[in-house]
Nucleic acid binder design. Sequence first.
DNA 1: CTGAAAGCGCTTACAG
DNA 2: CTGAAAGCGCTTACAG
Lengths: 323, 323
Amino acid sequence: MTTVSHTFSGNGVVNTATQARVRAAAAELGYHPDVVASGLRRSRLGVVGLVLRPAVGAHPEHVGDVDYFPRFAGAAALTCLEHGYALMLVADPTVPGGSVTAYACDGLVITDPVADDPLVASLRASRTPYTLVGADVNDPDDPRVVDIATPMITDRVLEHLAEAGATRVALVTGYDPIEWNTATEQRYRERMREAGAPELVVHAVELDGGEAGAQAADELLALPVRPDGVYCQTSDHARGLVDRFLERGVRVPDDIRVICGSDAERLRNTEPSITSVDLLPEPLGRQAAAALLRQLEPGLDLSVPVPDHGRIVARRSTARPGV
Amino acid sequence: MTTVSHTFSGNGVVNTATQARVRAAAAELGYHPDVVASGLRRSRLGVVGLVLRPAVGAHPEHVGDVDYFPRFAGAAALTCLEHGYALMLVADPTVPGGSVTAYACDGLVITDPVADDPLVASLRASRTPYTLVGADVNDPDDPRVVDIATPMITDRVLEHLAEAGATRVALVTGYDPIEWNTATEQRYRERMREAGAPELVVHAVELDGGEAGAQAADELLALPVRPDGVYCQTSDHARGLVDRFLERGVRVPDDIRVICGSDAERLRNTEPSITSVDLLPEPLGRQAAAALLRQLEPGLDLSVPVPDHGRIVARRSTARPGV
DNA sequence: CTGAAAGCGCTTACAG
DNA sequence: CTGAAAGCGCTTACAG
């Protein structure tokens, strides 16, 4: 048994000829080592977990912006596979009654952790390696965070709107307490204050985003100073918002320019098409996986490109009027 | 121990009050059942594996059409999570020296199995549940296949080219022995024979697709009868093919119409943009995951929409000349 | 309803 | 270099 174990794990010293005999016998018998038993014994399964926050287990229909998630996961998976790890997409184990599979992973990548994330607390307590994509807003100094550059992206968006001719810009953001929401709002308010402009912020619930976006449109149109530019973070909201504007006879982009914070299919082939930020999830996914693998195996040679953040895809909804 | 095991697994009978005490104690201690140990004992981990064929382990840079894979995996993952399973992206365990993690899964989904796939043979031998996406071309009657409707898609593509004015259509296909390649070629040849048209087939290697596509363009231009329409399956090939056409002064679509068999980012924002088939991987992913989950738990209530196959996204490269 | 005991298939010192 | 043995944390009949 020792010999077989050693030849497959590469741990002990085994005569090459013996190794060959072992492998030949294994092939003949269809034997291969049991990863689960080995994982139990060594407390190491060769699996990286990915949990998507917030709310994937709870509301599977709402995976943030649906175009973002598969691109992120795909890139992370390839990075893992290249280094002998599998990537497992797991449900949040802290939701009551939920699957606890996540705890089987050697480490976890968590996208968009919520404030005081209970899962992060639990991982810390059990000393499980983890990497966050976007910071816990109540713990901005955790070093195990992949930067998503929210303030810089906010700046770029506001500049783009200004160049498109907007002078009074509103923000439509969500309620989930994740960096993407809170840091965007914070930066937006800073910039408005610096410019002496009014801070026009509307919050929209994440669930049923189309309807929530329409309501946000109504709220914006009811403001004493009507905005002529809107930064709307999620694509569900942006879609509902623009449709409601049009219903009510408000022209996009002529009366109000709209930019969405996360690119998605539903922004492309519509009238008008909606400008958005491509968050470039692939390099982020590679980055996050690499950061975790480095914790799992400090010796690993992992060079991944440092991502650029937030490329703006200009579409009709921010074209200069008359263009 | 029995009591704790039973309260967490729901297997035996435990007094509700006792259950509450067990859970309270567990919460206080930070205890949760070890999925790996339980998996070892029960030979069931609660994990569905997904292996992407061909060649992901071997050539990670070449994941077929890169837009297809994450969309498929994302949809499959959501279906699994909704039913308490995790989805694990695993490397092919039959490649020598590769990770053997795939065998830890309760069942596997395999996309684009190659002819006489050794992994499929090994799963059959070990009676591991599996679902194939696209048939093994040497075993077309395996019932555990999710249909990818290659002949129907081929028909639609040829009709689209005909409507765009093409009268001599060539096919650029790959070498991998997967249904998508072989069934496309077979159907194409049938249709050409029926129409009394020449069968113009060029094979291009999958690796380094841009260069291979350029070479395919040269081959097509060297034919005695030059085609005026091309069905090019992969987006790498299509991109290289069209670029070479343009370099050599052949106009697309005026001289040759081009349609690509798999939609991808790189076909959209180029001059000319390239018409393609959106293979609608999301419903396929849901379908495949559901088929596997049904094998794992026959009682499961799984209703997934039956997918439509292959929606053609018309772009510039098949516009009627002069339009 | 709850303890004691065997065993899932490995890994890893430890003798031979 | 190769067997025998304990133990990873569960599950599951089996007594109490």
